[in-house]
Structure formats: C-alpha cells, structure tokens
C-alpha cells in the first residue's frame, strides 16, 4: 500500500510533448468536447428560451409541470434518505466486521448498476403488478403500489441503491477500525462512536454519495416510466413529463422543463468538484468485487485520510 502521499510534482511526461502534437491534440479534444458535451447542454438553454422568457416562465409554472416537479422532489425526499441509511448501514457492516459472504454481498449491492433501468421496471411489475407475485394480495387489500408514488419510489430505490454505499465502503475500508475500537473501548456507545468518530471522517464522501444519488433519483427515466403509468398531472415525474411535452409537439415546453434538470446536473457537477477537493470520491475501489476489498487497491490522496 502506498503509505507516502502521491508526489504532486511528478517529472514531466516523456512523450507527446512535441508542440505540434500537443497543441493539435488539445485542439481536437476541445472541439470534440464542445460538440459532444457542451453543445447538448447549450441547446437546452437556447431552446428553453427560444420563445422568450415569458413563455419559459409560463411553461415551468404550468399546472402539470409544477406537479411533475413536486412528484420528482417528493420521490427524492423519500428515496434519498432511505438509500443513505442503507448505504451507511451496509458500509458499517461490511467494513467494520469480518463475516463470510462479505464479498458476495458487495457484488449484490452493486447489481443495480449493471441492470438496465427498463429491466428494473419490468421486474418490479412482476412483484407488485396485477400479474405479479403480490398482485392478488395487494388488490384484495386495495393497496396501490404501481402506477402511483410507492412504485416510483421503489423503482428509484432499486436504481440508486449502490450510490452511497459505493462511496463509503472503500473510504471506510481504508480508514480501518482503530478509531472506532478506541472509542468503544473507552466506553462510547455504538451511536456515539458513529456520530462523533466515524461520521466526521466520512462526511464529505457521504455528502458526495447523497448528491450523486439525488441526481440519479431526480433524473431516472427508464425504470420509472415502466412503473408510473404516465398519468399526466398525477404520476408524472419531471423526466416523464418532459417526454410527454416533447411528444405533444411542445418542444419549447419540454426544453423549459429539461432546463430545470440540466441546472440540477450542473449544480451536481459543481458540488462534485467542490467535494472532490475535500477528498471525497478519491478513494476508489476500481473493481466491483475484485480482490480489492483489502487495502492495497485503495488509495487516498488526502494525507489526513490515509492509514498510518
């Protein structure tokens, strides 16, 4: 394990330093970034205001759009805290204890990342839908899960389940158990140990995971579109409402709504960069479930975080 902090002043790279090559490559990459990444972002703003600010304001205050914004916010308000609690619990269990099947558990937690959102949506249909495992029971109990808020929340929970855990596990693994063991042996309770010892060490990584989780919950389209039923003004989240407006030939309205989510994406990116400066997101376990649970693959760049 690299105990010394990474040297900041590396020796200059050896190849690719010829000015023609260097400047040419930078120019090509910048043009491509402009075309591939910046242009899609720019056109959202341009289209959203293409009929003027008044139309934009009217679009985003439209009754159905406002309801979609509310649905999206509500979903995030429910799903993000649940997945945060899950992420912290999973990280505590996996990093503070040794038990058989730990690595398998890690793989299972990360499954949602590799499953298509559509598959997730379809899978939920076969649990809570009329054709599903609990379909009859739910109907006789007169409970509506699909095509309603609970279904949207469940699908979002599935899709974003690994986000917080994935940020915390490698970091807490790298930090070890010494501090918590010291706190406990001095008589602190489990909660006290967590809140006054562990939490201060993981707060930025936790926030990082929460922000990424929130961005994904608010933007999720595939899984939610299967389980929501797309009822305008009732079960439409913002991404679904954008699709509806777009197919209604109200492109400007769609882009106005999309600009809200694009702003959220930009805020997320800025927060991400700010948190990365504080050391969050730096400790990475490159493999999903490689040999990586042990120390050597973890690497911290912030000296205060590295294990002595």
């Amino acid at each position: 394990m690299a105990t010394a902090p990474k040297p900041r002043n590396r020796r200059p790279p050896r190849i690719g330093e010829k000015p023609i090559f260097r400047n040419g490559l930078i120019a090509i990459v910048l043009v491509l970034v402009l075309l591939v990444i910046v242009a899609p972002l720019a056109i959202i703003g341009v289209q959203a205001f293409s009929k003027g600010a008044a139309f934009f304001a009217k679009s985003i205050t439209d009754r159905d759009t406002a309801h979609a914004i509310w649905m999206t916010a509500l979903t995030a308000l429910i799903a993000v805290p649940i997945n945060t609690v899950f992420g912290v619990a999973a990280a505590w269990a996996i990093t503070k204890f040794d038990f058989p099947g730990r690595r398998l558990l890690l793989v299972v937690i990360e499954i949602p990342f590799s499953v298509s959102p559509i598959v997730a949506g379809v899978a939920y249909l076969f649990v809570y839908g009329l054709q599903g495992l609990f379909g009859d029971a739910l109907q006789s109990a007169d409970m509506k899960i699909l095509f309603a808020l609970p279904g949207i929340v469940l699908a979002s929970l599935f899709v974003t389940a690994p986000f917080v855990a994935r940020e915390l596990i490698p970091l807490m693994q790298a930090q070890g158990r010494d501090l918590e063991e010291a706190a406990t042996s001095l008589g602190a309770s489990g909660w006290r140990t967590f809140f006054s010892v562990t939490l201060p060490n993981i707060k930025w990584a936790l926030l990082y995971g929460v922000i990424l989780c929130n961005a994904r919950v608010m933007g999720e389209f595939g899984a939610v579109s299967v389980v929501s039923g797309n009822i305008r003004g009732q079960t439409n989240t913002l991404p679904l409402h954008i699709e509806l407006l777009y197919h209604d030939y109200n492109a400007v309205g769609a882009f106005a709504a999309a600009s809200i989510l694009a702003s959220l994406a930009i805020v997320t990116l800025i927060a991400k960069v700010a948190l990365e400066r504080r050391g969050a997101g730096r400790v990475r376990r490159p493999a999903l479930a490689g040999p990586g649970l042990a120390g050597p693959t973890l690497e911290t760049t912030e000296p205060g975080m590295s294990k002595p």
């Binding site: 056109i43 608010m218 999720e220 989510l261 994406a265």
Partner: peptide, 17 residues
C-alpha cells in the same frame, strides 16, 4: 469536470437535446 456531465444529465434530457 464536464466529462461527468453525461452521468449527471438525466437520460431523457440528453435524449431530447
């Protein structure tokens, strides 16, 4: 920072853009 935009931008928004 912009490299992560495709992850941060909701897919439906990317689609219409």
């Amino acid at each position: 920072a912009l490299v992560d935009l495709p992850f941060a931008l909701p897919t439906a928004v990317a689609g219409i853009a």
